[in-house]
Amino acid sequence: MSGGVDSSVSAILLQQQGYNVQGVYMRNWDTADERGVCTSEEDYRDVQSVCKALDIPCRRIDFTKQYWNQVFQKTIDDYELGITPNPDVMCNREIKFGALLENCMANTRAGAGQEVWFATGHYARIQRADGAVKLLRGVDRTKDQSYYLSSVDERAYSRVMFPLGHLPKTAVKGLALEHGLESIVKKPESMGICFVGKRTHFADFLSQYINAQPGPAVDPNGKVIGQHRGLFAYTIGQGAHIHHGTDRWFVAGKVTKTNSLICVPGTNHPLLFADRVNARQWIWINGEPLGLSKPGDTLELDGQIRYRQSPLKCTVEKMSDGTFAVQFHTPIRGIAPGQNVVVWDGDWCLGGGVIDNVDNNKDASNEVLT
Protein backbone atom coordinates (compact mmCIF):
# COMPACT_ATOMS: atom_id res chain seq x y z
CA MET A 1 0.00 0.00 0.00
CA SER A 2 1.35 3.39 -1.03
CA GLY A 3 -1.12 5.74 0.61
CA GLY A 4 -2.83 6.47 -2.71
CA VAL A 5 -6.30 5.71 -3.99
CA ASP A 6 -5.34 2.75 -6.21
CA SER A 7 -3.71 0.56 -3.56
CA SER A 8 -6.36 1.57 -1.00
CA VAL A 9 -9.22 0.47 -3.27
CA SER A 10 -7.31 -2.73 -4.10
CA ALA A 11 -7.32 -3.59 -0.38
CA ILE A 12 -11.04 -2.81 -0.18
CA LEU A 13 -11.88 -5.06 -3.14
CA LEU A 14 -9.81 -7.95 -1.83
CA GLN A 15 -11.45 -7.67 1.57
CA GLN A 16 -14.90 -7.69 -0.05
CA GLN A 17 -13.94 -10.85 -1.94
CA GLY A 18 -13.21 -12.64 1.34
CA TYR A 19 -9.42 -12.48 1.42
CA ASN A 20 -7.52 -12.11 4.68
CA VAL A 21 -5.88 -8.81 3.76
CA GLN A 22 -2.68 -7.47 5.29
CA GLY A 23 -1.21 -4.10 4.37
CA VAL A 24 2.47 -3.49 3.76
CA TYR A 25 4.14 -0.14 3.16
CA MET A 26 7.53 0.04 1.49
CA ARG A 27 9.92 2.87 2.32
CA ASN A 28 12.55 3.36 -0.38
CA TRP A 29 13.62 6.98 -0.10
CA ASP A 30 14.63 8.97 2.97
CA THR A 31 15.02 12.62 1.98
CA ALA A 32 12.55 15.50 1.80
CA ASP A 33 11.16 17.14 -1.32
CA GLU A 34 11.67 20.78 -2.28
CA ARG A 35 9.11 21.84 0.34
CA GLY A 36 11.17 20.23 3.07
CA VAL A 37 8.40 17.66 3.57
CA CYS A 38 9.16 13.98 4.00
CA THR A 39 6.47 12.58 1.73
CA SER A 40 7.29 9.04 2.87
CA GLU A 41 5.99 9.82 6.35
CA GLU A 42 2.89 11.52 4.95
CA ASP A 43 2.13 8.49 2.77
CA TYR A 44 2.64 6.06 5.64
CA ARG A 45 0.18 7.99 7.81
CA ASP A 46 -2.37 7.69 5.00
CA VAL A 47 -1.70 3.95 4.76
CA GLN A 48 -2.21 3.56 8.50
CA SER A 49 -5.45 5.54 8.30
CA VAL A 50 -6.85 3.34 5.53
CA CYS A 51 -5.79 0.13 7.28
CA LYS A 52 -7.42 1.30 10.50
CA ALA A 53 -10.66 2.05 8.63
CA LEU A 54 -10.57 -1.43 7.04
CA ASP A 55 -9.48 -3.07 10.30
CA ILE A 56 -6.49 -4.79 8.72
CA PRO A 57 -2.92 -5.04 10.06
CA CYS A 58 -0.20 -2.92 8.53
CA ARG A 59 3.58 -3.11 8.60
CA ARG A 60 6.37 -1.04 7.13
CA ILE A 61 9.44 -2.45 5.39
CA ASP A 62 12.56 -0.39 4.72
CA PHE A 63 14.25 -0.96 1.35
CA THR A 64 16.19 2.30 1.09
CA LYS A 65 19.51 0.47 0.80
CA GLN A 66 18.27 -1.97 -1.83
CA TYR A 67 16.59 0.81 -3.80
CA TRP A 68 19.76 2.88 -3.80
CA ASN A 69 22.02 0.01 -4.85
CA GLN A 70 19.73 -1.73 -7.34
CA VAL A 71 17.82 1.19 -8.88
CA PHE A 72 18.96 4.70 -8.05
CA GLN A 73 22.72 4.20 -8.41
CA LYS A 74 22.18 2.51 -11.78
CA THR A 75 19.94 5.41 -12.79
CA ILE A 76 22.66 7.92 -11.93
CA ASP A 77 25.27 5.83 -13.76
CA ASP A 78 23.12 5.91 -16.90
CA TYR A 79 22.57 9.65 -16.74
CA GLU A 80 26.34 10.14 -16.38
CA LEU A 81 26.75 8.16 -19.61
CA GLY A 82 24.39 10.56 -21.36
CA ILE A 83 21.46 8.15 -21.70
CA THR A 84 17.96 8.46 -20.26
CA PRO A 85 16.98 5.45 -18.11
CA ASN A 86 13.54 4.39 -16.91
CA PRO A 87 13.87 3.75 -13.16
CA ASP A 88 10.16 2.87 -12.81
CA VAL A 89 10.61 -0.23 -14.98
CA MET A 90 13.77 -1.13 -13.06
CA CYS A 91 12.07 -0.58 -9.69
CA ASN A 92 9.22 -2.94 -10.52
CA ARG A 93 11.67 -5.69 -11.46
CA GLU A 94 14.22 -5.23 -8.68
CA ILE A 95 12.16 -3.92 -5.76
CA LYS A 96 8.36 -4.23 -5.93
CA PHE A 97 8.24 -7.61 -7.65
CA GLY A 98 11.70 -8.57 -6.46
CA ALA A 99 12.78 -7.73 -2.92
CA LEU A 100 9.31 -6.78 -1.62
CA LEU A 101 7.56 -9.78 -3.15
CA GLU A 102 10.17 -12.14 -1.75
CA ASN A 103 9.92 -10.54 1.69
CA CYS A 104 6.12 -10.80 1.75
CA MET A 105 6.12 -14.42 0.62
CA ALA A 106 8.70 -15.37 3.24
CA ASN A 107 7.24 -13.41 6.17
CA THR A 108 3.47 -13.60 5.76
CA ARG A 109 1.66 -16.22 7.78
CA ALA A 110 -1.33 -17.88 6.17
CA GLY A 111 -4.07 -19.70 7.97
CA ALA A 112 -4.76 -23.39 7.57
CA GLY A 113 -5.61 -24.17 3.97
CA GLN A 114 -4.82 -20.63 2.83
CA GLU A 115 -2.32 -19.45 0.22
CA VAL A 116 -0.27 -16.26 0.25
CA TRP A 117 -0.85 -13.84 -2.62
CA PHE A 118 0.73 -10.48 -3.41
CA ALA A 119 -1.49 -7.67 -4.72
CA THR A 120 -0.81 -4.12 -5.90
CA GLY A 121 -2.86 -1.27 -7.34
CA HIS A 122 -1.42 -1.48 -10.84
CA TYR A 123 -3.76 -1.12 -13.80
CA ALA A 124 -2.95 -4.43 -15.48
CA ARG A 125 -4.37 -7.94 -15.58
CA ILE A 126 -3.04 -11.44 -14.99
CA GLN A 127 -4.34 -14.34 -17.06
CA ARG A 128 -3.73 -17.91 -15.91
CA ALA A 129 -4.45 -20.58 -18.53
CA ASP A 130 -2.81 -23.75 -19.82
CA GLY A 131 -0.03 -23.54 -17.26
CA ALA A 132 1.04 -20.03 -18.30
CA VAL A 133 0.80 -16.77 -16.38
CA LYS A 134 0.35 -13.88 -18.80
CA LEU A 135 0.52 -10.14 -18.20
CA LEU A 136 -2.31 -8.30 -19.98
CA ARG A 137 -3.10 -4.63 -20.46
CA GLY A 138 -5.48 -2.98 -18.02
CA VAL A 139 -8.99 -2.46 -19.34
CA ASP A 140 -8.65 1.31 -18.87
CA ARG A 141 -6.21 2.06 -21.70
CA THR A 142 -5.61 5.57 -20.36
CA LYS A 143 -4.18 4.06 -17.15
CA ASP A 144 -2.74 0.76 -18.43
CA GLN A 145 0.59 0.13 -16.65
CA SER A 146 1.75 -3.05 -18.37
CA TYR A 147 4.56 -0.97 -19.94
CA TYR A 148 6.11 -0.47 -16.49
CA LEU A 149 5.65 -4.16 -15.62
CA SER A 150 7.26 -5.49 -18.80
CA SER A 151 10.59 -6.54 -17.28
CA VAL A 152 9.13 -8.78 -14.54
CA ASP A 153 9.27 -12.42 -15.54
CA GLU A 154 6.52 -15.02 -15.31
CA ARG A 155 7.82 -16.62 -12.10
CA ALA A 156 7.21 -13.45 -10.10
CA TYR A 157 3.68 -13.10 -11.47
CA SER A 158 2.70 -16.63 -10.40
CA ARG A 159 1.49 -15.35 -6.98
CA VAL A 160 0.43 -11.82 -8.02
CA MET A 161 -3.02 -10.24 -8.34
CA PHE A 162 -4.03 -6.87 -9.81
CA PRO A 163 -7.52 -6.12 -8.41
CA LEU A 164 -7.95 -2.94 -10.49
CA GLY A 165 -7.07 -4.38 -13.88
CA HIS A 166 -10.69 -4.67 -14.99
CA LEU A 167 -11.79 -1.24 -13.76
CA PRO A 168 -11.64 2.30 -15.14
CA LYS A 169 -10.03 4.95 -12.94
CA THR A 170 -13.37 6.74 -12.50
CA ALA A 171 -14.88 3.62 -10.92
CA VAL A 172 -11.89 3.27 -8.58
CA LYS A 173 -12.31 6.84 -7.34
CA GLY A 174 -16.03 6.21 -6.91
CA LEU A 175 -15.37 3.16 -4.73
CA ALA A 176 -12.95 5.15 -2.61
CA LEU A 177 -15.55 7.87 -2.04
CA GLU A 178 -18.18 5.24 -1.13
CA HIS A 179 -15.85 4.06 1.64
CA GLY A 180 -15.18 7.50 3.04
CA LEU A 181 -11.70 7.99 1.61
CA GLU A 182 -12.24 11.56 0.35
CA SER A 183 -8.81 12.73 1.54
CA ILE A 184 -7.11 9.89 -0.36
CA VAL A 185 -9.04 10.68 -3.55
CA LYS A 186 -7.97 14.32 -3.34
CA LYS A 187 -4.28 13.45 -3.14
CA PRO A 188 -2.35 14.22 -6.36
CA GLU A 189 -1.28 11.16 -8.31
CA SER A 190 2.31 10.06 -7.80
CA MET A 191 4.58 11.40 -10.52
CA GLY A 192 8.27 11.49 -11.32
CA ILE A 193 10.90 8.87 -10.50
CA CYS A 194 9.58 5.83 -8.66
CA PHE A 195 9.61 6.60 -4.88
CA VAL A 196 11.78 9.68 -5.37
CA GLY A 197 8.71 11.57 -6.55
CA LYS A 198 8.20 14.54 -8.83
CA ARG A 199 10.95 17.14 -8.66
CA THR A 200 10.16 20.67 -9.84
CA HIS A 201 13.69 21.13 -11.18
CA PHE A 202 14.74 17.61 -12.09
CA ALA A 203 18.13 18.58 -13.54
CA ASP A 204 18.96 20.40 -10.30
CA PHE A 205 17.99 17.30 -8.34
CA LEU A 206 20.27 15.11 -10.47
CA SER A 207 23.13 17.59 -10.13
CA GLN A 208 23.32 16.67 -6.45
CA TYR A 209 24.60 13.25 -7.52
CA ILE A 210 26.32 13.94 -10.85
CA ASN A 211 29.38 16.04 -11.55
CA ALA A 212 28.07 18.37 -14.25
CA GLN A 213 30.37 18.89 -17.23
CA PRO A 214 29.19 21.82 -19.41
CA GLY A 215 30.01 21.62 -23.10
CA PRO A 216 29.11 22.85 -26.56
CA ALA A 217 25.61 22.77 -27.99
CA VAL A 218 25.94 22.31 -31.73
CA ASP A 219 23.71 22.12 -34.78
CA PRO A 220 23.71 18.96 -36.98
CA ASN A 221 26.69 20.30 -38.95
CA GLY A 222 28.80 20.79 -35.85
CA LYS A 223 28.45 24.58 -35.58
CA VAL A 224 28.48 25.77 -31.97
CA ILE A 225 25.21 27.53 -31.12
CA GLY A 226 25.53 27.69 -27.33
CA GLN A 227 26.52 25.85 -24.18
CA HIS A 228 24.82 23.01 -22.31
CA ARG A 229 24.96 22.49 -18.54
CA GLY A 230 25.77 18.77 -18.72
CA LEU A 231 24.41 16.02 -20.98
CA PHE A 232 22.53 14.39 -18.09
CA ALA A 233 20.19 17.41 -17.91
CA TYR A 234 18.70 16.88 -21.39
CA THR A 235 16.35 14.36 -22.95
CA ILE A 236 16.04 13.60 -26.66
CA GLY A 237 13.08 15.47 -28.15
CA GLN A 238 12.78 18.09 -25.42
CA GLY A 239 13.47 21.80 -25.68
CA ALA A 240 17.19 22.57 -25.42
CA HIS A 241 16.76 26.06 -23.88
CA ILE A 242 19.44 27.32 -26.26
CA HIS A 243 19.09 30.91 -27.45
CA HIS A 244 20.49 31.16 -30.97
CA GLY A 245 18.83 33.14 -33.72
CA THR A 246 15.05 33.19 -33.96
CA ASP A 247 14.51 29.41 -33.93
CA ARG A 248 13.46 27.31 -30.98
CA TRP A 249 15.99 24.49 -30.57
CA PHE A 250 15.33 20.87 -29.57
CA VAL A 251 17.64 18.08 -28.44
CA ALA A 252 18.31 15.54 -31.22
CA GLY A 253 21.32 13.67 -29.84
CA LYS A 254 24.28 13.50 -27.47
CA VAL A 255 27.92 12.74 -28.26
CA THR A 256 29.67 11.69 -25.07
CA LYS A 257 33.19 11.49 -26.55
CA THR A 258 33.09 15.24 -27.37
CA ASN A 259 30.56 16.14 -24.64
CA SER A 260 28.39 17.74 -27.33
CA LEU A 261 24.65 18.29 -27.32
CA ILE A 262 23.15 18.04 -30.83
CA CYS A 263 20.31 20.51 -31.33
CA VAL A 264 17.95 21.10 -34.25
CA PRO A 265 15.65 24.01 -35.08
CA GLY A 266 11.93 23.33 -34.84
CA THR A 267 9.85 20.74 -33.02
CA ASN A 268 9.29 18.64 -36.17
CA HIS A 269 12.82 18.52 -37.54
CA PRO A 270 13.46 15.18 -39.36
CA LEU A 271 16.36 14.33 -37.01
CA LEU A 272 13.91 14.14 -34.11
CA PHE A 273 12.21 11.14 -35.69
CA ALA A 274 13.30 7.52 -35.96
CA ASP A 275 11.64 4.23 -36.84
CA ARG A 276 14.16 1.58 -35.75
CA VAL A 277 15.84 0.80 -32.43
CA ASN A 278 18.14 -1.92 -31.17
CA ALA A 279 17.50 -3.14 -27.61
CA ARG A 280 19.68 -5.00 -25.10
CA GLN A 281 18.85 -6.69 -21.78
CA TRP A 282 15.67 -8.03 -23.33
CA ILE A 283 13.27 -9.85 -21.02
CA TRP A 284 10.56 -12.08 -22.45
CA ILE A 285 8.01 -12.52 -19.65
CA ASN A 286 6.89 -15.96 -20.82
CA GLY A 287 10.09 -16.95 -22.58
CA GLU A 288 11.33 -16.13 -26.05
CA PRO A 289 8.58 -16.55 -28.68
CA LEU A 290 8.92 -19.54 -30.98
CA GLY A 291 8.87 -17.20 -33.96
CA LEU A 292 12.18 -15.66 -32.85
CA SER A 293 14.21 -18.81 -32.29
CA LYS A 294 17.19 -17.90 -34.51
CA PRO A 295 18.95 -14.76 -35.83
CA GLY A 296 17.05 -13.18 -38.69
CA ASP A 297 13.64 -14.38 -37.50
CA THR A 298 10.98 -11.67 -37.33
CA LEU A 299 7.62 -11.24 -35.61
CA GLU A 300 4.89 -8.66 -36.22
CA LEU A 301 3.71 -7.10 -32.94
CA ASP A 302 2.55 -3.85 -31.32
CA GLY A 303 5.21 -1.70 -29.69
CA GLN A 304 5.70 1.36 -27.49
CA ILE A 305 8.78 3.28 -26.45
CA ARG A 306 7.07 5.22 -23.68
CA TYR A 307 4.16 4.96 -21.26
CA ARG A 308 0.75 6.11 -22.59
CA GLN A 309 2.02 6.20 -26.15
CA SER A 310 -0.52 4.70 -28.53
CA PRO A 311 0.70 1.24 -29.59
CA LEU A 312 2.27 1.14 -33.03
CA LYS A 313 2.72 -1.78 -35.41
CA CYS A 314 6.31 -2.99 -35.48
CA THR A 315 8.54 -5.83 -36.64
CA VAL A 316 10.82 -7.43 -34.04
CA GLU A 317 13.96 -9.12 -35.37
CA LYS A 318 16.36 -11.35 -33.48
CA MET A 319 19.95 -10.29 -34.07
CA SER A 320 23.07 -12.49 -34.14
CA ASP A 321 24.44 -10.95 -30.93
CA GLY A 322 21.33 -11.86 -28.90
CA THR A 323 19.81 -8.38 -28.98
CA PHE A 324 16.57 -7.51 -30.74
CA ALA A 325 15.85 -4.82 -33.33
CA VAL A 326 12.42 -3.22 -33.47
CA GLN A 327 11.34 -1.64 -36.75
CA PHE A 328 8.29 0.58 -36.32
CA HIS A 329 5.97 1.02 -39.28
CA THR A 330 5.57 4.70 -38.34
CA PRO A 331 8.43 7.04 -37.30
CA ILE A 332 8.41 8.09 -33.63
CA ARG A 333 9.53 11.44 -32.28
CA GLY A 334 12.11 11.73 -29.52
CA ILE A 335 13.34 8.17 -28.96
CA ALA A 336 16.02 8.20 -26.25
CA PRO A 337 18.67 5.50 -25.67
CA GLY A 338 18.22 4.03 -22.20
CA GLN A 339 14.43 4.03 -22.37
CA ASN A 340 12.44 0.80 -22.69
CA VAL A 341 10.86 -0.55 -25.84
CA VAL A 342 7.97 -2.91 -24.99
CA VAL A 343 5.94 -5.18 -27.26
CA TRP A 344 2.46 -6.74 -27.10
CA ASP A 345 0.52 -9.38 -28.98
CA GLY A 346 -2.91 -7.77 -28.71
CA ASP A 347 -3.41 -7.22 -24.96
CA TRP A 348 -0.71 -9.74 -24.03
CA CYS A 349 2.51 -8.04 -22.94
CA LEU A 350 5.41 -10.18 -24.16
CA GLY A 351 8.26 -8.14 -22.66
CA GLY A 352 10.81 -5.59 -23.73
CA GLY A 353 14.36 -4.34 -23.60
CA VAL A 354 16.52 -1.28 -23.02
CA ILE A 355 17.08 0.85 -26.13
CA ASP A 356 20.78 0.77 -27.00
CA ASN A 357 20.87 2.75 -30.23
CA VAL A 358 18.46 4.55 -32.52
CA ASP A 359 18.42 4.86 -36.30
CA ASN A 360 17.65 8.54 -36.92
CA ASN A 361 16.60 10.03 -40.23
CA LYS A 362 20.09 11.29 -41.01
CA ASP A 363 22.25 11.27 -44.13
CA ALA A 364 25.97 10.65 -44.51
CA SER A 365 26.83 14.36 -44.29
CA ASN A 366 25.71 14.56 -40.67
CA GLU A 367 28.87 13.00 -39.24
CA VAL A 368 28.47 14.83 -35.94
CA LEU A 369 25.52 12.64 -34.99
CA THR A 370 27.75 9.58 -34.81
Rank of each mutant, 00 (worst) to 15 (best):
A203K: 11
D204G: 06
D204K: 14
S207F: 02
Y209G: 07
Y209V: 07
A212E: 05
A212D: 05
P216R: 11
V218C: 06
D219C: 10
D219H: 08
G222P: 01
K223T: 14
K223A: 13
R229F: 12
L231F: 03
A233E: 12
Y234S: 09
T235K: 13
G237N: 12
G237F: 13
I242F: 11
I242G: 05
R248C: 12
G253I: 08
G253W: 04
K254V: 02
K257Y: 07
T258G: 00
T258E: 04
I262H: 01
I262A: 00
C263P: 02
V264M: 03
V264R: 07
V264F: 07
V264N: 06
P265D: 10
G266L: 07
T267L: 12
N268E: 13
L271Y: 10
L271E: 01
L272W: 03
L272D: 06
F273T: 10
F273S: 08
A274I: 09
D275G: 10
N278V: 07
Q281K: 12
I283A: 09
I285A: 01
N286I: 03
L292M: 09
S293R: 13
K294W: 08
K294T: 11
K294L: 08
K294N: 05
P295T: 04
T298W: 00
L299I: 11
E300I: 01
L301F: 09
L301E: 01
G303V: 05
Q304Y: 06
R306D: 12
Q309D: 13
S310M: 13
P311T: 12
L312P: 00
L312G: 00
K313P: 02
K313M: 06
K313F: 11
C314D: 02
C314P: 00
V316E: 08
E317H: 09
M319H: 05
M319V: 08
S320P: 08
D321K: 01
D321V: 04
G322M: 10
G322P: 06
T323R: 14
T323E: 14
A325G: 12
V326W: 08
Q327G: 10
Q327F: 09
P331A: 15
P337K: 04
P337F: 04
G338S: 12
G338H: 04
